[in-house]
Design a protein around this nucleic acid. Structure first.
Lengths: 152, 152
DNA sequence: TGGAGTCATATGGGCGTCAATGGATTCACA
DNA sequence: TGTGAATCCATTGACGCCCATATGACTCCA
């Protein structure tokens, strides 16, 4: 299996730690990134997370922009500056920062949702809404979009 | 990790010293630059800082401009002439000059924000605004970028 | 087919280490 | 000799690291 798929719900403990689902940890390990790269989603109240696969995706976007330009600063601020690298402990847990928790409205539980090259971390209630919305809109997009390789 | 990523908030002590985040220090050490190269951002009320990686980026930018031309003088003045090299003490702290503090509106706290090949130093309040702005505009820039395929 | 045993994951908590911070002492230079 | 800076030392508080336990799924065997 290549990427992050399926979804899992885990709890935060008293120190704010939460276990990354074992299936996702396996992907991160294979990916070779030490830690968990994550940042608030630009358009949703969720957190985008991943490893080198996600990082490469971001870097390839930045490669098209001239360094030292205001545009480059802007995008790299949004993607690198706002991001955080969380350490993963021996048990596969991370501690979410206050910034991240605030952005996603996370309190005591989170949903991990796989999106292939990355995954998202949601507050369970918001994820339920998002999921419903995503299903409706994806249906519309899939029906009038030409067939494309189904990436995993 | 190759570049400056994530962000940190640190305080200035009574002598105006502030600790460079350990993660950034690690990058600077590997980068091999002794000290901290920094200059006021041309477009923002922040300070650009980094090591050899940043210097190389500037140099390669200058390479595209005809030497001895007024344009070259202008750019090299803006990027080299205005810069300062701050000394890093044994604990990994630097003392920001008055010029720099004035430019960025820094008083007692600063945010270090990684932008990959360099990082920026902000007054926390201004960074919060800038961050929100960056997220909004980056979203716009990224979403109408042609979609790419073939991710890992 | 059912039950016991086994295993892996999720979860809880304690402790040591390091980074951030504050202060003091020494040094250089005017 | 005074002023500012650089180096050194001390404190503390967070976080990384380790060990212990619970819980549920799965296997294997009777």
């Amino acid at each position: 299996m290549h990427g992050f798929v399926s979804h899992y719900t885990n709890r935060l403990d008293s120190k704010g730690r939460v276990s990354i689902p074992a299936a996702f940890r396996a992907v991160l390990t294979r990916d070779g990134f030490d830690g968990l790269y994550c940042f608030p989603s630009l358009s949703q109240s969720a957190v985008d997370a991943g490893g080198n696969g996600l990082l490469n995706e971001i870097q390839s976007r930045l490669d098209g922009i001239q360094p030292l330009s205001p545009e480059h600063d802007l995008v790299s601020t949004a993607l690198f500056g706002i991001s955080e690298i969380l350490k993963v402990d021996g048990e596969g847990r991370v501690t979410l920062s206050d910034t991240i928790k605030a952005h996603a409205g996370i309190t005591d539980q989170v949903v991990f949702a796989g999106l292939g090259y990355k995954f998202q971390i949601w507050e369970p209630g918001r994820f339920a809404e998002h999921r419903a919305e995503a299903m409706r809109r994806a249906l519309g997009m899939l029906s009038d979009t030409p067939a494309r390789e189904g990436r995993a």
